[in-house]
Nucleic acid binder design. Structure first.
Lengths: 333, 333
DNA sequence: GCTGGCACTCGCGTACACTGAGTGCCAATC
DNA sequence: GATTGGCACTCAGTGTACGCGAGTGCCAGC
């Protein structure tokens, strides 16, 4: 679509704009790249690039700035994700050598790692699998009127929710109820389909049903775990406090964050630029994502939210490195 | 210390500055309050207030702005915390009618409530009590090499941590170990002092010790739970994105947040203004806090972080209302 | 097709005058 | 003696003018 020279010029504009945040003029391009033509030629090419929608001018007599289409071309063209710098390699391997076993804590700290590596805001979403391999169920009396139901899955995730039996249970009743709940849930891979077998005791059956319902409920809505780290980094990217406020608001709405990442992944993208995120308020932001897999199954999404003029090459490298190493670690337990 | 008229003028300056964020001049004071003297008199009083450190001038020929000392006087003087508005009363009672049982979730959502009510950033810290009434212990094999130890306390809090026994345990060994851990922890009110009684089986004793250590560790550092909500609100308060970034960074450091709230509470304050927070970067911020009690015992701190020119009266009302109702609810279970 | 050259555009910084809000001070007044 | 009206003064902010410089578009010539 674009000949070699045009694409070289476009690439140069994007790169310089990412570095300096200033509109870049034709002579800068000549200076910074060994393009071997005069600035007038570059200007001619730039008007074409502008006409075709890759570049824009903030005003006449200013340099050019990439449009979303320009960034898109740039990102599509830089095929390989690039390599990590030595400092980042150290960060990653240090992190994974110290990583502990539990899913939530791992996801949270991985989010922190990514935020530090990329100096942007990192977002990690843990997918709610319908398939929970529940290993253990326990019912604990918290007070006379409430019982906490705790279920532990094979990944170390815990579902807990309290229920309030109509009448207090004695120790033996509680044990029988717990056994019945455990029988219903353990091994039933699709938790929501679990059905307890009646014990014949109406009081206990009622409690058992409530407890199973509690676990199913907790497994259902506890589903998407969202971890946002490094929100302060995005503050450095924007001057206007109004823009910043909007972005922070988005980050606070976990549902929105989840749906943005899902949308992007569903469309098969790795990078969503500006309006491609599907959120009008993120017009000046881009999202870079990678899937997390556990044993080949989609288990979540890891990504980064930064300004459209972020360093895509390095960010892509960091996101893909962390996602693959994290997937590997989670798969191996 | 200040006569009636001076304190009335100071109060008026603070109030107007909170509303408008503009330096306030003598004639505005005459207009907005029924003070009954001329602007010249007000000016004379204001020079005195400035000399004594309650007010400051951004530059000659500008109005006056309160200093920290000025805010401090203002806050000390407005004795009663004020009342909630009708909308806020509705928010509070709606919240507490729907509140569920578990501590963490309650604290988190209370933080959200306070953020919405005050339109500032809310912070809730749950205190790590050394005294945990552990009700139940469970050990679940996650993989061949790792076992998750789960302990449930009487408040519904869960401590979990995985351990890695040197050799895989069979079901029976796991059960014996679990029984031994449970015996050591349940009823021992100061978890860190718990010592398991040897079973005579070296393999099991080793696992038991590791498991007890894991729970003690989890109980120890899982201690301070920190919930920050409404960070976007603070973005509206500051124009400069650099200031904003600093404040957000502070909010991301949970340890710092905890120590700020502790410091303030320890000094017996309810409001900490600017440098009173003890953090240089929060020079333009104030913190309003209230303790949380469960059964009369200190169980945490709830508070708000806003700009120094926040609405202290309404914020104090909201913080104290939420803290007292929350304490009541937590006490009643 | 490329390029040097040139006219043109327009943001930005500086200089300057003007306005208006606000102050400090003082002499007159109550 | 406290209060006040009056007045000179200060200074941020605004508008205007202007030159500079970075950048463009276009064109004739190579």
């Amino acid at each position: 679509m674009l000949d070699d020279r045009k694409s070289a010029i476009l690439r140069a504009v994007v790169q310089q704009y990412i570095e300096t945040a200033q509109p870049v003029g034709s002579s800068h391009i000549v200076d910074s790249t060994g393009i071997g033509v005069s600035s007038a030629t570059v200007r001619n090419e730039m008007t074409v690039l502008e006409r075709e929608g890759y570049l824009a001018q903030p005003h006449t007599s200013a340099g050019r700035v990439p449009t979303e289409k320009g960034y898109r071309f740039f990102v599509d063209e830089l095929g390989d994700p690039g390599d990590l710098g030595p400092a980042q390699i150290r960060q990653v391997s240090q992190f994974f050598s110290h990583a502990t076993g539990e899913l939530e804590e791992t996801l949270r700290s991985a989010s922190g790692l990514l935020a530090r590596m990329t100096a942007t805001t990192a977002v990690v979403v843990g997918e709610p699998t319908e398939v929970h391999d529940i290993r253990s169920v326990q019912m604990v009396e918290l007070s006379r009127t409430s019982v906490l139901v705790v279920a532990v899955t094979s990944t170390g995730t815990i579902f807990k929710r309290s229920i309030e039996p109509e009448a207090p249970l004695d120790v033996e009743q509680l044990a029988r109820a717990q056994a019945s709940v455990a029988e219903a849930l353990i091994g039933s891979r699709t938790v929501s389909l679990a059905t307890p077998t009646p014990t014949g005791d109406a009081v206990i059956d009622q409690v058992v049903e409530a407890a199973v319902g509690a676990v199913v409920g907790a497994a259902g809505d506890n589903g998407h775990s969202v971890y946002v780290e490094g929100a302060s980094h995005i503050a450095a990217a924007f001057e206007a406090s109004a823009t910043l406020r909007e972005v922070l608001q988005i980050l606070e709405q976990q549902l929105t964050v989840v749906s943005i990442l899902h949308d992007v992944v569903d469309r098969g993208l790795t990078v969503a630029i500006g309006s491609e995120t599907g959120v009008a308020l993120l017009a000046e932001c881009s999202v870079v994502v990678a899937p997390l897999n556990i044993s080949g199954q989609h288990a979540g999404t890891i990504g980064v939210l930064g300004p459209t003029r972020m360093n895509y090459r390095d960010t892509l490298a960091a996101v893909s490195a962390v996602s693959s190493r994290l997937s590997k670690m989670l798969t191996e337990g």
